[in-house]
Design a protein around this nucleic acid. Structure first.
Ligand code: ZN
Ligand code: ZN
Ligand code: ZN
Ligand code: ZN
Lengths: 132, 132
DNA sequence: TCGCACACGTTATAGCATAACGCAATTGAT
DNA sequence: ATCAATTGCGTTATGCTATAACGTGTGCGA
């Protein structure tokens, strides 16, 4: 699933996410794009749907927000499961991969014959700066 | 955080969750409790807040739903991070712990000096029966 | 008795996400 | 060239999820 050229709306949404210093909700994105002609949530959600499909944006389930992939150029999906650490104070997100975690979870699903489609790993807490 | 005696509302909500064969949304719980006098979402959310605090109910972030803990009697929190496999077809949820996964994620947070408060691991896909 | 903590009830509101309709541009056969 | 299928887009309306704000009552220790 490599990313084809983005459409105008997709590019606008992606640009907002890339320039942001943390995850944004769909409605926050909408507000930032009103000057560019965005009027309705669906314009944002439809763009996000594609960006998620292309793997250039991730959805953070625990905070109903979206963030640009921290590994531009690579295909995040090929690294296996992606994990996030989300600071609840400053909003910063760290994205990382851990092959051993992947392996353990994959082993578990295999042992249960569970067909995994999408795995979410999100750690919420305080980043080093905010915990001090 | 052991569970004190539940209040009437808390007991009603917990009972609904325990008897359900899968996770329920707060509004579904509300509907099931209208006959018992529940009228507003807050009655459900306030009960859930306590049940989550006591560790007898888990919140599934990726589907905005709640499920009774699969390990009654034990304190789930003491097992470390809890993981869930959620079947998107039949709604069944499997709850499990994996100490190695815990260990890897804890190592990562320590290395980044990230103070983890709450970790979510949710695998969505198809259970053995539904994948067939 | 006073003050406090806690559970509860109600109304209103905020925040997140999708359904359903129609239109326009693109593509790729036939 | 024409038709059909696909995709993106815009708009309106709706539905689902969660919390704010206010007030009531009850129990319990100072
Ligand atoms: Zn990524
Ligand atoms: Zn921080
Ligand atoms: Zn549990
Ligand atoms: Zn199933």
């Amino acid at each position: 699933m490599s990313a084809p050229a983005l459409t105008k709306n997709q590019a606008l949404v992606f640009d907002v996410l890339e320039k942001a210093d943390g995850p944004l909700s769909a409605y926050t994105i909408l507000d930032k794009l009103r000057d560019h002609g965005f009027r309705a949530p669906l314009q944002v959600y439809r763009a996000l749907e594609k960006l998620l499909e292309y793997g250039v944006v991730h959805r953070l389930e625990s905070i109903n927000s979206f963030v640009a992939c921290a590994h531009p150029g690579e295909n995040c999906h090929s690294h296996g499961i992606v994990a996030f650490a989300i600071c609840e104070s400053c909003g910063q997100v760290m994205e990382f991969h851990d092959h051993e975690v992947d392996h353990r979870l994959t082993d578990w699903t295999k042992s249960k014959k569970f067909k995994a489609e999408k795995t979410t790993i999100e750690i919420r807490g305080l980043c080093e700066a905010c915990a001090a």
